[in-house]
Design a protein around this nucleic acid. Sequence first.
DNA 1: TACTGGTCCGAAAACGTTTTCGTGTTGAAA
DNA 2: TTTCAACACGAAAACGTTTTCGGACCAGTA
Lengths: 345, 345
Amino acid sequence: MKPKLTLKQIAYELDVSVSTVSKALRDSPEIGEDTRQKVKAFAQLYNYKPNNIALSLKNRKTRTIGLVLPEIVHDFFATVISGIEEVANKKGYNVIICLSNNSFDREVMNMEMLANGSTDGFILSVAKETQQKGDYHHLQEVINQGMPVVLVDRVVEEIVCDKVIIDDAEGAAKAVQHLIDSGCSNIGIITTVDYVSVGKLRTNGYLDALRKNNMVINDDLILKIEDIDQSQEQINEFLKNRSVDGVFAVNEQFATSAVKALSTKGLKVPEDVLVISFSDGELSRRFMPSLSTVNQHGAEMGAKAAELLIERLERPVDEEHYQTAIVRTSLIERESSLKTKKAVV
Amino acid sequence: MKPKLTLKQIAYELDVSVSTVSKALRDSPEIGEDTRQKVKAFAQLYNYKPNNIALSLKNRKTRTIGLVLPEIVHDFFATVISGIEEVANKKGYNVIICLSNNSFDREVMNMEMLANGSTDGFILSVAKETQQKGDYHHLQEVINQGMPVVLVDRVVEEIVCDKVIIDDAEGAAKAVQHLIDSGCSNIGIITTVDYVSVGKLRTNGYLDALRKNNMVINDDLILKIEDIDQSQEQINEFLKNRSVDGVFAVNEQFATSAVKALSTKGLKVPEDVLVISFSDGELSRRFMPSLSTVNQHGAEMGAKAAELLIERLERPVDEEHYQTAIVRTSLIERESSLKTKKAVV
DNA sequence: TACTGGTCCGAAAACGTTTTCGTGTTGAAA
DNA sequence: TTTCAACACGAAAACGTTTTCGGACCAGTA
């Protein structure tokens, strides 16, 4: 219950001035050898640690990163956090996390809260609702105040700042190409509505792959889902009436729902239909059949974002030159897209 | 790129003193009506927001909660965070998250980092390595400094403070009872080594249920896993040589591995063997068969923890009376434990 | 006129640091 | 003996707030 030790307290105990204590602890040559020893010994003994808040006020730097995410119960964002934490901690930064729950208002609130001195900069993945609204004034505002922002995954073109994305379209194309190479000729896609930037890009990748292979594009094989809570029903309905031999789903949830829907229809994966997913998580790895998927390397993305932000924070004079880092995806082949004897025949 | 507006700046512009500005903004009766209007108008116009750091220094309160977790890529902890965030934000608190990655050293480092003024208190779930070591000096230290701590889920008895736990043993017993009620007579358990507090409790619950039903306890049906990375092999081996009609797994990972092991052995769930899991997450919900499980209500636990902490932070004079909140688990019955016709016969 | 009381505002301290600058003491050189 | 570095330390300002206290001014009263 004892209050924390301060410089003033040390100074009082040792009968020297506060400045002397400060300088002694920081090994200033202004301080004589014996007083330095005395002060350091005392500080060590009572485990003195400078107060972060006071330092922040003095230096106008908090060494804290504000992280605003749409959700967290989602392996992808969880791995992103891990990546950020990893490099932030290594460089002596703390991370304040706020969740927007995909709500525009909460995103704005969180940023305002953190922008008043609590953090030096932001890493953010914009909420779904924000992308829908297309209102990004809160981002521009903190940028105008001189706080660097790094956008991750769900980025927005209108804002100029550092960004970390994956090659969504390319990754999707790779996945679809894999299906094609495995003999699929009738490939459906289960994706999100277009205003979700990554959903749209993945849809584009799907289309690209089909075109590149001179396959017909059938709009009837494209399912765009708005609300994940009703996805299972929609997917059931979608697959019931269509005969596909391959399904590309833009996330794990849709992929598992697809497998389930096919199963109720009496179709097995991968024997009858191949399925490939996007975003590698526990679910893909442990599902039966295990899901082939496009790995987003969330930890790498987080790490890269933290590096970009910290670099910008610590660069002496900022040369307004922003970069967009692209983290390459990789295809992970598992059971759900395994070419079976039947498919080969 | 303009620096943030400060009281001093406003005072200068309006040709009044800093104290006048401060008081005007806080509706002090000391300030005349017209100056108050003037100041408020100016502040509103230029969107003045007080600097959090300065307030923290002045008030010796940061309105931030330090959260230290073993991991985050794990639905349970993710939901805990959601719950904490929810109530913290509602009460005007920020949350700084640090990950220990189940390492003792990182846990200590993180706490030391945050204890130097960055947070008003802690919510923490102790790292596996810490539980193994049994070294809790870092917890006692921050408590001695007057910072309240709330332990969540993985608690430690030696430390007196507020705690939030679930009825691990009871929940496990409920799960096993459910298996028994469904006709299982030969129930295996896949659990963790004993130093993981919750693992031990769940094992106890398993034993309790068996005893209560006058069933023999067969040590050969108890598998204790140390390292999750080798769990699949161990579970395969375990189930290969034993004939069980029910399996209780203390987490989702073990449960899915069990289903897989049984499957390779030619046994189907739930037709041949019933399986029940612990800790409800995306995996349990989406697995095929969907997994019956004991719901830990992570969000509730997080919310309760945040409430306990904030209450203690804001109570004027603290009456050293700590409580342990128990969040009741609930059994969720899904396909993996569905009594089938076969089992009924 | 002299006092009282109220209204409205500013000076200053405080939170815990760091850093600039000034100053007193010493010892040696002149 | 005087002068002057060099040395060792302290005072004070600053970061952005809030709050206590004191004081100026004015109107009203005796």
